[in-house]
Nucleic acid binder design. Structure first.
Lengths: 345, 345
DNA sequence: GTGAAAGCGCTAACAT
DNA sequence: ATGTTAGCGCTTTCAC
């Protein structure tokens, strides 16, 4: 079979415990034996059995990330992949492995998480979404397993989470449009039950209010994270007797629909309508015209989530760790909002 | 600590081995004890320790997928996520966990794979790319670990792999354009060192040749998997004294660049130039006009890779398993190629 | 600074 | 049909 700690010990003329100590860089081991043992390891092609180690040490040095059920929405795929990259990069750096799991439905998800955590295959979990009353979260909380939420959930305000300040992000985006001279600004939102839609809408409202611009209900339309939503929103907006001259749009993909709708209706971006949206997926720079977007640092979100989780796993409880991380966002201004409204308005 | 097999055994008044047998549905266990033991498990909240099990059974029921170093190219993110979904879905169905790993460079990649396989943390690996002389492949081959390649590599013809028949796919795409009446068909290729570029170019050539259309070197341009490539290709093509009326494009993202270039130069798609590309990423239907594309079944590619790998891991060697899986592709004809050339040409 | 021994939680002969 | 026993490969007291 494969070479074990005993083989190395025998060949090196030391005891298995010594080899083990060399492995973990135990302080009280002589430079010389350490050197010799390491050479033998190399020579024999020894590799520690991770399972055996983890059986006794009761730690797996792995975390899992739970993918929500099939994300139909395209942007989610880009979003998740970017997130996963960040998670994996940081985890690997910290010596942790990342296990991906997904369930067809909530029940399966809980089963998977339960098997993984209870079965001591992973030390903690990262959740990539926030639902209202999530059985997975409940499970994790009940059993006091370390976990982190990417996103924000009103149901669980005290949970370890990393998130974007969506209120502020929307505020900034709206202020940008106002700074360009716009006063008639509409908002194309996502599903109203999603925290992210709510937050962004709030930021939009605050910006208007701070600038003394009245909010107009008919300039706010709800939809989904699909381009079709944006497309339909345009036939609605552009049929209004009073039309907005600028739009804040909840997501880049929706913007693509908006762009298409506007194009078909014969309006020019940014001259007739300026737009800015969120997430800054790589396609934004490729569209015609390139789309202004709020970069929310997705990779960073994942990286930080992983870091926070691992920190919590390793934490001995002697100090108190933060339980909310806010990843900074940044406006990426491109052509779609680079147009100053004529003063005459 | 947490409840073990012994606790269950004691409470149920049986031996640990009996409990173990219940766990694995051993045939020679009485209906009655099985029932009782299972109840006790439930009652005590018992969960098998996966590490302990895997230490003795010498099987981890996990596989790992190796992400190539940072994929700058956007489409790769979509591609990988879709692939991963397929892999995870099938693996979970088969009772396997999926571990994601990535390395900053080739050396790190080998180290990661080596740690995972030698350390007995996973039973096999999925590689998502094919390089010319890949140290990871060499490692895996040398040590005879089960692994599967998504893609094709000329350097390793005998390796377990799942792939698209890119020659045929390009052949079909080209024939489609020919069927629309085109005879002046150009090809926008990707990096010439990539197998996929080579294969698609070959399919294109074969289709032309089968239809008695002469291949024209100046209508073939190489680039990268970036929209910019497509964009630049257009200024080239459209300055030619004789211009193609249709284009086969190596990837959807490149097509977006082509679309943009054509638009800026004042050409209409599909009337002036018809185009079709590959991969059918979800954005193809959203572009203006919607893009014809060859769907290569990315999810299926992942699903099959996972299936093939697990089959190989479990395989006892008594029969011979296939070592190459070809995932069927399918033309998705949309507006960008829905234009029949006037007879008068 | 190093060794001996016990045991992590489980499975798998070998008994009976 | 079930119990007994012996490890899987490693870490970790406790000695010296």
């Amino acid at each position: 079979m494969s070479v074990t700690i005993k083989d190395v010990a025998k060949k090196a003329g030391v005891s298995p415990s010594t080899v083990s100590r060399v492995l973990s860089n135990h302080p009280r081991i002589s430079r010389e034996t350490s050197r010799r043992v390491k050479d033998i390891m190399e020579e024999l092609g020894y590799h520690p059995n991770i399972m055996a180690k983890s059986l006794v040490s009761k730690t797996t040095e792995s975390i899992c990330v739970i993918l929500p059920k099939p994300a139909e929405e395209l942007f989610l795929n880009l979003f998740f992949m970017e997130l996963i990259r960040g998670i994996v990069a940081q985890a690997n750096r910290a010596g942790y492995d990342v296990l991906i799991s997904s369930g067809g439905n909530e029940k399966e998800e809980v089963e998977a998480v339960s098997r993984l955590l209870h079965g001591r295959r992973v030390d903690g979990a990262i959740l990539l979404y926030s639902r209202q009353d999530d059985p997975v979260v409940n499970f994790l909380k009940t059993h006091d397993y370390p976990f982190v939420l990417v996103g924000r959930s009103d149901s669980y305000p005290d949970i370890l989470s990393v998130d974007t300040d969506n209120v502020q992000a929307a505020y900034d985006a709206t202020r940008h449009l106002i700074a360009q001279g716009h006063e008639r600004i509409g908002f194309v939102s996502g599903p109203p039950n999603l925290v992210v839609s709510k937050d962004r809408l709030e930021g939009y409202n605050r910006a208007l209010s701070d600038c003394g611009i009245a909010m107009r209900k008919d300039w706010i339309v709800e939809g989904e994270f699909l381009q079709d939503s944006g497309y339909r929103a345009m036939s609605f907006f552009m049929n209004l007797p009073e039309r907005p001259t600028a739009l804040v749009i909840v997501d880049d993909i929706v913007s693509f629909g908006v762009l298409r709708g506007l194009h078909e209706l014969g309006y020019k971006v940014p001259e007739d309508v300026s737009i800015i949206s969120f997430n800054n997926i790589s396609l934004t720079e490729l569209s015609t015209p390139p789309l202004s977007s709020v970069d929310i640092g997705i990779y960073n979100l994942g990286y930080t989530a992983s870091q926070a989780l691992i920190q919590n796993i390793r934490h001995d409880g002697s100090s108190v760790l933060p339980n909310r991380y806010v990843i900074p966002h940044r406006l990426m201004i491109r052509e779609s909002s680079m147009y100053s409204m004529p003063r005459s308005l």
